[in-house]
Design a binder for these strands. Structure first.
Lengths: 193, 193
DNA sequence: TATTGTTATACTCTATAACTATA
DNA sequence: TATAGTTATAGAGTATAACAATA
């Protein structure tokens, strides 16, 4: 049903001509928007993640911790970092363990409450962030700038805002019922290789 | 630097006013497109993944295996499935182990080559896919349809095609040099709690 | 020799629940 | 009692490399 031709120049994900027959009530256009939004984001995230991992051996989550603490401009409690990254405190402990082993963060005692900690990043981490963030932002400028004019970029942002709003609203709604499916007559689809 | 207000109605991710001063050469507009494309996709993927996991206890990768085999309309070799999902054959073995344990796929001997297998999905899996895909496509229709008019959807697709192309081109290009960074004077940013 | 799939191993991310020490 | 963080355990996903069977 969802099909993307094998060529490397990566065209859009398309659904088949029979899509709306196979899925009564579905919208081929909406599904293609959905699939291609996800695909575009995967490609973009992949660029950032690959760069971060190749150059600095940082996982996406580890980068997130450094970016949050560095962005705050001051040490933060583990719980605060965990909330911003939307992970549990148990997961945060192990992320911080790894970063501390590598000398990128320090656990400092909290001056006011001896149950708490303050997480600070080291000079090494600051050096990484100072090199990494400019190159990520340069990549963002290059890729988006190569694809879209400023006015297209503004229009894209407007659409993305509406999609984000609709998706956020859908989170609290029950999943919709599908209207069933008509399996296509598989005459001789897609030879096995 | 990247900041998204805490309210639940989820507005756009924005960069600060000082962004282009802090990162010389960067484009605030491009970075916002990048960040919000990723955020919108995360929200959309999250809806699908949550539904798939809650209702059918299927991980995204497991769902991918079923969708690929079901979509092919016939049994496929593990290597072919692995290529389509972009995972190694070692990873595919463990995905298939899990699915086979749950009675959702079968490993059949390949008639022509005794090194190979053919992976088929069971009636149980077909029942899941027949229920799952229509509800995912209904969600796509509802969310995208609530956000954008058909004409906006077509415009979005055009932009996404260009972004995908640029991102695919960037994959084989070297990472751009960042033009350095000017740290903002952290007077009293972001109180710790 | 080359290919297919498995095994063994390892690492990251993630979660939950029990636990310690503080408050 | 309640909170902050850790530990222990578990499971998914991913990868690499060595391996057996087959081509």
């Amino acid at each position: 049903m969802i099909d993307s031709p094998a060529g490397s120049p990566a065209p859009l994900v398309r659904v088949g001509d029979d899509f709306e027959d196979e899925y009564p009530g579905a919208s081929a256009l909406a599904t293609e928007c959905y699939a291609n939004l996800v695909r575009a984001a995967d490609l973009l995230v992949g660029l950032h993640n690959r760069h971060t991992s190749d150059r600095y051996q940082l996982s996406p989550s580890a980068r997130g911790v450094l970016a949050v603490v560095e962005g705050a401009g001051q040490p933060l409690e583990p719980t605060v970092i965990a909330e911003r990254l939307m992970v549990t405190t148990g997961s945060m402990t192990s992320l911080l363990d790894n970063l501390e082993k590598r000398g990128l963060v320090r656990r400092l005692p909290h001056p006011d409450d001896r149950r708490k900690l303050l997480i600070d990043i080291t000079a090494d981490a600051r050096a990484i962030v100072d090199e990494l963030l400019p190159s990520l932002h340069a990549r963002e400028r290059d890729v988006i700038g190569a694809a879209l004019t400023p006015s297209e970029q503004r229009a894209l942002l407007v659409s993305l805002a509406k999609v984000q709003r609709a998706a956020a609203d859908a989170r609290s709604a029950p999943a919709p019922e599908g209207a069933g499916r008509r399996r296509p007559p598989r005459l001789e689809a897609d030879p096995p290789e």
